[in-house]
């Protein structure tokens, strides 16, 4: 009920406040990387970021009002997309580099030491360039991230019980709030109505690219884990197993 009274400005301000702090890898990086050392650094960082991602999701107005099962399903469907959008945002002002954290920055070429990762790095760099061209604003970025989370599991099996139906309807209302907020953020940029519509289209279309890279990244991580290149543990393992077992 309180959400009905919350306008886009307040919604954006709440999700801006929910933004996680910078996360540091805090490891002595021994260069040149080996396949294992790079994969271990990437997965260690992802594991730390995942813990803060749960905290972030909980601060999105209305998220905790969804059923616990919806909360779990949404997070397990989108975690890598969220990590990738964060990476893109950190890297947007650093052409040719991927800023995984303030103390873990990689050039495209450094991806050579991990089999199959260069292709993923290139897709991430291409998405970053596109966001750079569009001059993505922080307000828009936080809306896109919330959109990824709330949209991640929308086309799965239809709700059966009344609790599931109620949660589903709350989820749809929440998505409306996020879309309203993104539209509002775009409206503040001094564009014509047509330019605003086009910008909304371009930004949301980029989300399908991020979903695609995330799927590639998921396959890659599963391969690395299967080949014992990297040990995956803790929350990341739980999320990954969740992902592989659900197909």
């Amino acid at each position: 009920h309180h959400r009905a009274a919350m306008g886009p400005e307040e919604f954006i301000s709440r999700i801006m406040e929910a933004e996680p702090p910078d996360i540091y890898l805090m490891e002595d990086l021994k260069k040149p990387f080996t396949e294992t050392s790079m994969m271990m650094s990437l997965t260690n960082l992802a594991d730390k970021e995942l813990v803060l991602m749960i905290s972030w999701a909980k601060k999105i107005p209305g998220f905790l009002e969804l059923s616990l099962s919806d909360q779990i399903h949404l997070l397990k469907c989108c975690w890598l997309e969220i990590l990738m959008l964060g990476l893109i945002w950190r890297s947007v002002d650093h052409p040719g580099k991927l800023i995984f954290s303030p103390d873990f920055k990689l050039n495209r070429e450094e991806g050579q030491c991990v089999e199959g990762i260069m292709e993923i790095f290139d897709m991430l760099l291409a998405a970053t360039s596109r966001f750079r061209e569009l001059k993505l604003r922080r307000e828009e970025y936080v809306c896109l991230k919330a959109m990824i989370l709330l949209n991640s599991n929308l086309c799965s099996s239809s709700p059966q019980t009344s609790e599931e139906l109620e949660s589903r309807s709350k989820l749809l209302r929440l998505l409306d709030s996020v879309i309203d907020s993104l539209v509002w953020a775009i409206s503040k940029l001094g564009l014509t109505t047509q330019q605003q519509t086009l910008r909304l289209g371009h930004l949301t279309m980029l989300l399908s690219h991020i979903r695609h890279v995330s799927n590639k990244g998921m396959d890659h991580l599963c391969t690395m884990k299967r080949k014992n290149v990297v040990l995956v543990y803790d929350l990341l393992l739980e999320m990954l197993d969740a992902n592989t077992s659900s197909g």
């Binding site: 730390k48 813990v51 803060l52 749960i54 905290s55 909980k58 616990l68 099962s69 909360q71 779990i72 997070l75 397990k76 803790d234 929350l235 739980e238 999320m239 197993d241 969740a242």
Partner: peptide, 24 residues
């Protein structure tokens, strides 16, 4: 396996009222 058992850490972090930063 129930969702709760399958996603023990995730479940715990979602339900816990203390900051996950502390748990990390």
């Amino acid at each position: 396996t129930s969702l709760k058992e399958k996603h023990k850490i995730l479940h715990q972090l979602l339900q816990n009222s203390t900051s996950p930063v502390d748990l990390a």
